[in-house]
Write a protein that binds this DNA or RNA. Structure first.
Length: 423
RNA sequence: GGAGAGAUGGCCGAGUGGUCGAAGGCGCACGCCUGGAAAGUGUGUAACCGCCAAAAGUGGUUCAUGGGUUCGAAUCCCAUUCUCUCCGCCA
């Protein structure tokens, strides 16, 4: 969430920046400031009453010490009244604080000034494109057909065991998955990321910290008995490693990589978007996460974008980079690049990575801060990106690399897979 | 799952009703000492929310969390969460 201080001090700037998202927050912000005023007023009342009460308690204590308990009686009577009024002020303060909190979490992150105003994916900006789009001719099979033909992905079997959206990878399909995971992890290690194996279930506080809760409540699987959520991405547990943490400048930047399975309910998805591997309830992903100081986060974002670009090049799949417009950027992000690969049989671009800078939006929710040498507290900035999500990458590899002899494994994966052809 | 013990500052640990945001130690910061370092030594060292233009200062809150008793709670009572030990079960 945004900090109250920023909202108060740079009110017009905040309103203007939210217009990039086509959000008019004028009224909401006015309400927020009004509630904050109420909260402060109530607190001042409560503080003054408590101060009086504390002073009286000290006097009474002093009287008891010198054995003049009798003289304490009239003082005691005064404290009752103070206590009641203090409770009232506290209740008013809590009420205002609660309402304030409810409004604060309605405000999305401020888009970076360079983000284009827009309403939907139509307005996104293609900032980079590389690779020849293969023309496979009409005989080309989509990955779901290839998966069946070579017996490497069985969707029907997954449906029987769990349901739609839970494919079973078999034989070389399973080994290709493992090869990709290990390749991605090794690449990240080489680039200076340290590896984390996170829990796959998280509590509500973690879900709130990274912004999945309460806004995207319905997108996560929830286990009511324990009140835990299955992670939709390793971003959630890995970023929350630093919830309620105060970092020192020398700790920065923090760079982590984590493989995890990811679980998403994907309620409301349908049609060609969910065909085959395009959208699943469970999938594998390697995620990179960075925590930086406020002045370094955009340099880190570009570095992460470059890093993911390098992965796509090594896998030899045509790709493009899309900078999301204000209308398409997520609630929590200030700037996002989507990385899309071209899946030649489906003839469509598939998003395999989303690299975002959240600035201090998540950090404010998580109470993640940096204490400078001078003692001053700064908000930390958090970033993350897929590096990469497997299923659509697998779809593109299968489709683009199909030959009459079989599916050619990209060179960089051969040492990991242990074979060079799926036939 | 059953029985018991516990939760205090960055860490260890004292504290069973007032003068306690909290002894002592470690760590850390700055100084002294030193040719330099170690040792020694001195001082300082929580967060959050207010007031103040800001600094200084100052009010309030916080000893797992939430409630209660009391003029006054780290300390007493209740609930919850978590940790540890033993037993059971188990990859």
């Amino acid at each position: 969430m945004l900090s109250l201080q920023v909202i108060r001090d740079q009110r017009q700037e905040v309103i203007d920046r939210l217009k990039i998202r086509q959000v008019d927050a004028t009224e909401l912000i006015a309400k927020i400031i009004r509630l904050d005023d109420v909260r402060r007023e109530s607190q001042q009342q409560m503080d003054a009453l408590n101060a009086q009460g504390n002073a009286l308690a000290r006097e009474i204590g002093a009287l008891f010490q010198v054995g003049k308990a009798g003289e304490a009686k009239p003082l005691k009577e005064q404290t009752g009244e103070l206590k009641i009024r203090s409770k009232e002020a506290e209740a008013a303060m809590e009420q205002a604080r609660k309402e304030l909190e409810e409004l604060m979490i309605l405000l999305p992150n401020l888009p970076h000034p360079s983000v284009l105003t827009g309403t939907s994916a139509e307005d996104n900006e293609i900032v980079f494109e590389e690779g020849e789009l293969p023309d496979l001719g009409s005989a080309a099979l989509a990955h779901w057909d290839l998966g069946k033909q070579y017996r490497i992905i069985d969707f029907a079997l997954g449906t029987r065991i769990a349901g739609a959206g839970f494919p079973v990878y078999q034989g070389k399909g399973a080994r290709l998955q493992r090869a990709l995971i290990n390749f991605f992890l090794d690449q990240a290690l080489d680039a200076g990321y340290s590896e984390i194996q996170p829990p796959y279930l998280v509590n509500a506080a973690s879900g709130f910290g990274t912004g999945q809760l309460p806004d995207k409540d319905g997108q996560m699987y929830h286990i009511p008995e324990e009140d835990l959520y299955l992670i939709p991405t390793a971003e959630v547990p890995v970023t929350n490693l630093y919830r309620d943490v105060i970092l020192k400048p020398q700790d920065l930047p923090i760079r982590h990589v984590a493989y995890s399975a990811c679980f998403r309910r994907e309620a409301g998805s349908y049609g060609k978007d969910v065909r085959g591997l395009n959208r699943l309830h469970q999938f594998d992903k390697v995620e990179i996460v960075q925590i930086t100081g406020p002045d370094q986060s955009y340099a880190a974002l570009e570095e992460m974008r470059e890093y993911v670009t390098g992965l796509l090049r090594k896998l030899e799949i045509p790709f493009r980079i899309v900078k999301l417009c204000g209308g398409d950027i997520s609630f929590t992000a200030a700037m996002t690049y989507d990385m899309e690969v071209y899946s030649a049989a489906q003839k469509r671009w598939l998003e395999v990575s989303s690299v975002s800078n959240f600035e201090s939006f998540q950090a404010n929710r998580m109470k993640l801060r940096i204490r400078e040498e001078t003692g001053r507290m700064l908000p930390a900035h958090t970033l993350n990106g897929s590096a990469l999500a497997l299923p659509r990458m697998v779809a593109a590899i299968l489709e683009n690399n199909q030959t009459p002899e079989g599916i050619r494994v990209p060179d960089v994966l051969i040492p990991y897979a242990g074979f060079d052809l799926i036939s």
